[in-house]
């Protein structure tokens, strides 16, 4: 049901843009006002969330160590999975953020009960592959869109564009990332629906971004291959937004506004949702701290004195038996 609700919401959003920008002709609203508002919400929201997290201190240094610690000189430390220096932590974070290190470890457990229980753990890289493909495609597609936001278009974006369309199938050239991201999104959706455990834990908030991004991808694909869109006009509008001199060209079709509207929704939704894992990973105390706990004292800003049972109080209680047992005491 969570999935159905989310789908309905995304379809309703599409309808809003179709009716508003298509039927109603509110091009300035959908092409200028909403994107601006969404961008501001995204930026301000993202910063607000990160600052809000950062306002809470990290009272203890609690890295999850995933390899051999630094100890005796002749024991080889695992410097990336159990870093004890800042450079090590940077290495660990790079692996985590660029290569999804922890997810790469993923295993799949199987229990066979016949003839006494037997557990096995197979390597399971599907989720890692799906996640990597999705995130990198999303990233490349975002960068590729740089050609609408820059004038002249920097060489690296042109180059990326060429690389992405290197297969040269059809006219216009087909982007590899478009195929891949659709596949990855389908996989991420299907595993949620097909695996009963995942279905059980999934919230509408887990399906909604999948459908929303899928809708964005689909409208993008439609514009490129099926519904002729005036690219020059699109760039005109976007450059107007970028240069803070917004203008609304006449020749843009409804599909363009639907695409832009969905992207705006994604931006505005981002900071208030689980998508903030993009910011949160940087602040995760089990990953971004060095395991140098016994080497360097970590300060807890709210450390406070607690009630203790002092040695003197303790000796007062046990003095007689201590003396009898021949254990030294402070006061005879």
């Amino acid at each position: 049901m969570s999935a159905v609700y989310s789908l309905i919401i995304v379809l309703a959003l599409v309808l809003v843009a179709v009716v508003g920008a298509g039927g109603g002709g509110l091009h300035a609203l959908f092409g200028v006002v909403i994107p601006y508002v969404a961008f501001v919400v995204f930026l301000a929201g993202f910063i607000y969330r990160v600052i809000n997290w950062a306002k809470s201190p990290v009272p203890f240094r609690i890295p999850t160590t995933a390899g051999q610690q630094e100890s005796l000189k002749w024991i080889k430390q695992n410097k990336l999975d159990n870093p004890s220096t800042t450079w090590g932590v940077i290495g660990r974070m790079v692996l985590e953020i660029l290569f999804f290190r922890s997810l790469f470890r993923n295993t799949k457990m199987q229990l066979k009960v016949n003839g006494g229980p037997s557990l096995s753990y197979g390597s399971s890289k599907f989720l890692w592959v799906g996640a990597i493909v999705f995130h990198y495609c999303f990233f490349i597609i975002l960068l590729r869109h740089g050609r609408f936001f820059t004038d002249p278009v920097p060489g690296c974006i042109e180059w990326l564009d060429k690389l992405d369309s290197i297969l040269q199938i059809g006219v216009p050239n087909i982007y590899i990332t478009e195929f891949l991201i659709v596949g990855a999104l389908l996989y991420l959706f299907l595993r949620r629906v097909c695996d009963s455990k995942l279905r059980y834990i999934s919230l509408p908030a887990d399906y909604f971004p999948l459908f929303l991004i899928m809708a964005i991808v689909i409208t993008g694909i439609l514009m490129r291959y099926f519904i002729r869109t005036d690219i020059v006009a699109a760039k005109d509008l976007i450059m107007g937004l970028v240069t803070l001199h917004p203008k609304v060209p006449e020749t843009l079709g409804t599909i363009f506004y639907v695409h832009v509207f969905l992207v705006s929704i994604l931006m505005a939704y981002f900071p208030w949702s689980k998508l903030m894992h993009a910011g949160g990973i940087f602040l995760s105390p089990t990953r971004n701290l060095a395991n140098n706990n016994r080497m360097k004292r970590h300060i807890n800003p709210w450390n406070y004195p607690v009630k203790l049972h002092t040695y003197e109080e303790w000796e007062d209680e046990f003095r007689d038996v201590l003396k009898e047992a021949g254990i030294p005491v402070e006061k005879e």
Binding site: S56, V58, I62, G280, T286
Partner: peptide, 19 residues
């Protein structure tokens, strides 16, 4: 929540990937 960044961040960023 005010004392532990861990709690605050962990409350917010789970994507329920099921790993």
């Amino acid at each position: 929540l005010e004392k532990y960044r861990s709690l605050k961040v962990f409350m917010d960023i789970c994507v329920r990937c099921g790993a």
